[in-house]
Design a protein around this nucleic acid. Sequence first.
DNA 1: GCTTAGTGTGTGAACGCTCCCAGAGATTGT
DNA 2: ACAATCTCTGGGAGCGTTCACACACTAAGC
Lengths: 340, 340
Amino acid sequence: MATPGARPRRATIFDVAAEANVSRGTVSRMLNGEPYVSDSAREAIEKAIAKVGYVRNMAARNLATQRSKAIALIVHEPHSVFLEDPNIGAILLGTNDRLSEDDYQLVCLIIGSDRDSARIADYLRGGFVDGAVIVSAREHDPIADAIAHIGLPAVFVGHPMSAPEMPYVGIDNRGAARDITRELLSTGRKKIGMIAAALDRDSGSERLAGFRDALGDQFDENLVVDFPLYSRTSGVEGMKALLDRAGDIDGVFAASDALAAGAMDVLRERGRSVPGDIGIVGFDDSDWAMRCQPQLTTVRQPADLLGREAASMVLELVNGITPESPGRILPTEIKLRGSA
Amino acid sequence: MATPGARPRRATIFDVAAEANVSRGTVSRMLNGEPYVSDSAREAIEKAIAKVGYVRNMAARNLATQRSKAIALIVHEPHSVFLEDPNIGAILLGTNDRLSEDDYQLVCLIIGSDRDSARIADYLRGGFVDGAVIVSAREHDPIADAIAHIGLPAVFVGHPMSAPEMPYVGIDNRGAARDITRELLSTGRKKIGMIAAALDRDSGSERLAGFRDALGDQFDENLVVDFPLYSRTSGVEGMKALLDRAGDIDGVFAASDALAAGAMDVLRERGRSVPGDIGIVGFDDSDWAMRCQPQLTTVRQPADLLGREAASMVLELVNGITPESPGRILPTEIKLRGSA
DNA sequence: GCTTAGTGTGTGAACGCTCCCAGAGATTGT
DNA sequence: ACAATCTCTGGGAGCGTTCACACACTAAGC
């Protein structure tokens, strides 16, 4: 119904060629920065392009070259987490920055529902993108399977347990969790619990493993609670549960800053002082950490660099370079603040 | 330098046609859900598609149809704001949801630098998308100009002052600011200041105008401070400045919740009680509002619906339907909590 | 003066799809 | 029984590129 826009016909490479009195081959070579274009031709083409207002038709180019110069960023999170999790935003920006250096375009695909999953799998198959960066894949993620099946160059942020052979970039969640738990131990805490989350993801289960590593014999399964999401509300629930189980608990490792923030709210409500009565440490160094009172001792993870590195890797894959190692681990850093 | 992937040649519509013993015309009709395809043909084609593993090549389709079934979401914000502002995420998700209902794909384009601007303008011209939703355009935004020039169907979230004739969806910032300021007045405050921000955007300047409306004669220019960004740090600075200018100030309208949160941190530090000594109201009803102590009285704006509505409008435009009114205003709601 | 190599240019043939038209065959109306 | 209509199908043309090849011209090299 009604012609869409009825925009004037766009100028094509033919128009430019005619205007510049050269052939389309020459125009194409010039456009692609290939050698063997004389100065006079170059100049005439530049003038002609400006005159007829030519811009490349990417659909045609994609069809002819069989590539799109676009990379997908696939985020698989329910809406609430997408909004709350600052890491995702930072990864997004890091990826975008790196891709733009090579004139690749980032295309964000958000999986909220199963319906999204199917459509996005089609999209990936459809040749719209040359590669993908996948954030926060779960175990048995249908998208991860689809990508493997299509054979699309892809890099995971985080190390998916269900596809350990795929290229990934991540942090040493286990080591970092171990280190920050030791930090908590070093303040003399005796009864330390953990609010864990997202055990269906590598980050979640590794952080728990690191916690266990640090505690060794002292590890008490009863002092670990876990939740599906790294959210503040889970932190609230988790802290309440821990206090119920052990009123004399004096240290808590929360698997994310948001969890820690929720936990601290509960403690404030119940009149327990932090770090006096109980020490708390988090993970992420997100803006939650700075907003807590006292500010949170936590693990800083370089989210933007994770994005950059993932982008670099996927570009390598797209260009047929096999990375020497399938995974890259970026360093983390403990940020000592007041909460422990 | 190494063949990219060397993936096996993908099945085309020809392969399907051959396998099903029909012509590509019939396959195409079937794929596009057109009438006049016999049941036997349909069945044979379905089998053939499954057998050869066919998926449409979108680049080819786009070239033939001259449309892409994709809509761009253009976010023009420095990185820090992108990460902090919860509205952007909600708009993003709302837009994505609406588009997926019509099987359109959302493509996020983030403008961080000028370099991005140029590349994105090219991208938009390149025929990758059929339309665009633009979030947080500034005055004299180069992208807005580019879009107008290309003639791409576009809808703004917020009402850009430099392009008032463009379709947009927004809220009544001025009215809402007036209402919440009156709320503050109704608690008996006498000396009310405002921490304004982003005056180069409609949201910022309209909120200031609404504040002025509500105060009428009592308006005191000296009690207004303004900042470029709606950020917590601006709120900290702003509150300090206001206290310097008028130590007896007893009410503050912050143009965003993040600003209000910063202001409340300063007040806590200085030992002023909220809402006892001073009443504070914000704007956005973001998660900042719930995290403040006490929780913030604020204006709820339906960010996800803004996204949905913008998506609906751009889909109409793409389909050649001219919206009856150029702009749509969504209702806001005052959330009374404890801060005023 | 004849090959050889290096530059620069033009053109046909894809790329994989949709659109459109011609036409076959079945069904209906008079 | 013949025209008119409706349903379904096949295939040519075109979308705007890139790519590979053929060719023309120039400048050396022997």
